[in-house]
Design a protein around this nucleic acid. Structure first.
Lengths: 133, 133
DNA sequence: CTGTATCCAAGACGATACTG
DNA sequence: CAGTATCGTCTTGGATACAG
């Protein structure tokens, strides 16, 4: 049987294909912000530190599992900081690091573009759907 | 390609949660660029029109299914244009619209940030992994 | 050449219940 | 309060074969 996983084969393939795809650091970050909740969490934290439960309420619909999972990934990448206050009950605050703020600003460029052009995208979509039935 | 059911349900759900999540146009575009191949395709097309097979080669590892699917989504949103030359064999070129070029520029901001700070992210990651075992 | 259709595996994600 | 553990579902995407 195949001793290599699909992911491994893909990586190996990409490595032999094109530097454009492999060495490119943007791949890394692009994949980070591709996570469903990352951009939302970045935005939720952009106006100051928030507690775990505050985030859960602000980013409505996120399950505790995904909230923790995404927060941990962000923390691992040095984008957010986790501060525990050993009170009773425990209080935990999350805040953007300067690195995280930087990423947020970059993502904001996409957001700004979106706000400025979403109507055109929607119009194109309607047109396309009308033509294609 | 009836991709509407689950997506529509999710949208409807979100609508009942929070304006921050629903009305925000960035959600729309954020979800677009969250697709695994979108940013890559935008980049691949940024230096001029390309044929279907050229894209398949440049964005190594993409299956015909995903290539078509992503290209269609991009076309639907008015981000790329599809031009068919009815020769034998058929020739199809894809190119960024001005709208698509704009989005690409915004995504480029993220890419630029990534290139400038990926080492810090990686360092943070190593540190985290070392601490957590 | 440019797709389309089908099947299947892997992973993402949500719901829920439970712990320190 | 702030998670963690478990389970089941749905989506994603790759492989493959085939069609216009």
């Amino acid at each position: 049987m195949a001793t290599t996983t699909a992911a491994e084969r893909r990586d190996a393939d990409r490595a032999s294909y094109d530097v454009f795809l492999v060495g490119c650091p943007s791949r890394l970050v692009l994949e980070r912000i591709s996570d469903r909740w990352v951009a939302l969490l970045l935005a939720a934290l952009s106006d100051g530190p928030k507690r775990y439960s505050e985030l859960g309420r602000k980013v409505a619909g996120v399950s505790p599992k995904m909230l923790t999972q995404t927060l941990r990934a962000l923390e691992r990448d040095g984008l957010v900081e986790r501060e525990v206050t050993p009170s009773v009950p425990v209080r935990v605050d999350y805040r953007l690091t300067s690195l995280g703020e930087g990423l947020h600003r970059a993502v904001l460029a996409v957001k700004d573009w979106a706000e400025a052009h979403v109507d055109e995208v929607l119009a194109a979509r309607d047109r396309y759907d009308a033509e294609s039935g």
